[in-house]
């Protein structure tokens, strides 16, 4: 038996199919979830994917955060359900206060799309165990609102607790404080990041590297061994 991983589609989601494919490539079973679903179809984990849910109106993720599907997701994430938020999914998780801080417009005000070098700072979250701590990886980054901000106390707390999961290396593409690319919650089951691991799982496309695949193999191992 393999793990069933849900991928939520909101109006304006873009990367739901790519995320489902990445889950399949890793050997798990993707389960399509709809923003109006009131239950999570008993999935073992959920990915909130990238895109522009509700056109980024009001703030990125602010309207999606109040979708029906978010109610069971919030409840179960607090009880330990693994949740990964990628890009817009990360923004939704911060708007829902499952993760601290929030994202502002990129400091240079341009949409950015590049292969970004990252360092895995925490290889013990539910989504990063197949990496080594300190490992450097290349993952595509593409967004408008990627500048991570939080107050100094929160940042210090995140650093002290090892909850800065990923940091930009060599180049800070958006003005994120302390080069933060991704963070986790206290328990390590909820992780969010701006770059897109689901676009780096097959050698045929992108940079030819599969540096994003360990996200999906990490969670699969965790769920299957559970």
């Amino acid at each position: 038996m393999t793990a069933r991983i849900g991928v939520v589609t909101f109006p304006g989601s873009l990367d739901d199919r790519d995320t489902q494919r990445a889950i399949r490539v890793a050997g798990a079973e993707p389960v399509a979830l709809w923003h109006k679903d009131k239950d999570l179809k008993q999935v073992d984990a959920v990915v909130l994917c990238g895109g522009f849910s509700y056109g980024d109106y009001l703030r990125a993720g602010a309207i999606a955060r109040f979708s029906p599907v978010m109610e069971p997701l919030l409840e179960q994430a607090k009880a330990g359900l693994p949740v990964l938020g990628i890009c817009n999914g990360f923004q939704i998780l911060t708007e829902a206060h499952l993760l601290p801080g929030t994202m502002l417009r990129n400091n240079h005000l341009h949409f950015i799309c590049r292969d970004q070098k990252l360092r895995v700072e925490n290889a013990e979250t539910a989504w990063t165990t197949d990496y080594a701590a300190g490992q450097e990886i290349h993952i595509p980054l593409k967004n408008n609102d990627g500048q991570y901000v939080a107050d100094e106390r929160t940042l210090d707390e995140l650093e002290a607790e090892g909850r800065v999961a990923f940091r930009y290396v060599d180049f800070n593409p958006n003005g994120s404080q302390r080069d933060i690319a991704g963070v986790s919650n206290e328990a390590g089951n909820v992780v969010g990041l701006m770059p897109h691991p689901e676009h780096a799982v097959e050698p045929l496309i992108g940079t030819g590297r599969t540096d994003g695949l360990p996200f999906f193999t990490s969670i699969l191992k965790k769920l299957v061994n559970a």
Partner: peptide, 8 residues
């Protein structure tokens, strides 16, 4: 809760 994000 909605119109403003009080983090920022």
């Amino acid at each position: 809760s909605f119109l403003a994000n009080t983090v920022i």
